[in-house]
Design a protein around this nucleic acid. Sequence first.
DNA 1: CTGACTGCAAACGTTTTGCACGGTA
DNA 2: TACCGTGCAAAACGTTTGCAGTCAG
Lengths: 134, 134
Amino acid sequence: MNNYTDLLRRHNLKATPQRLAITDILQTHGHVSIELLYEIMLQKFNSISLATIYKNINIMLDNAFVQEVKIPNTKSVFELTKETHSHLVCEVCGSIQDIRVDLTKVMETQTDFKGFKVNTASVVFTGVCRNCKN
Amino acid sequence: MNNYTDLLRRHNLKATPQRLAITDILQTHGHVSIELLYEIMLQKFNSISLATIYKNINIMLDNAFVQEVKIPNTKSVFELTKETHSHLVCEVCGSIQDIRVDLTKVMETQTDFKGFKVNTASVVFTGVCRNCKN
DNA sequence: CTGACTGCAAACGTTTTGCACGGTA
DNA sequence: TACCGTGCAAAACGTTTGCAGTCAG
């Protein structure tokens, strides 16, 4: 009975092997597309259904312990919800890294938000990662 | 023969009424989903096909004079390419405004990009717009 | 006049739904 | 034991493709 068993139950969700596998994979890989998640799940459950993957990802999104990351020119990936952070996306190898960015500086310097009350900021940096630079 | 007639021709694309209407709508509305674009186009061309909308948006994306804006928890919208900017998305009414954000401050303050060479940054602020605050 | 574009219909890939069976609590 | 969740198959979407007719240049 690991962390996610508890978390699932607290949300009145049953801790099925499939769900625990999904949270494990998200934890291990950090960011996964539906496609990749399905591939990895197939190795653990020979007859898992894509419908099950979708149903569970949607339930986890609804319960806010998983989030979708939308990236320009790419498929979305999913990650476990954690403290606010931004993403570095390598346009060469497609890898995604988390990064803490201090946006207070931006918010302070930014003179004109046009009367807009900002709640959250989604930031995706695209470029070339350390490995691919070489 | 307006701006977009020229622009289209410079890209070896014919300036058809449908294409000119699309660029006009983008210019007028700023940001439109495929769905909304289709609705508006239907008012001007009673038998326009969704296929035509998709084909043209894709051609305009390929030629880089239109860009897709990916927004958390929402459908993508399209905009005419202009100078780099960020977006303010109202979570109440769904409206989208452009905003200039100076990211050089972030890039300077940010100590650790993990060896990552940043090329572009996509920033979406989500919150409540001036109108909806009242 | 000719190649490019449009509109239609069909195809395709992705996501959702309904239902009977199986497993968690 | 009572539901909730799974897996399958079918349905529903959103997007793309192929083709015949039309139009811009």
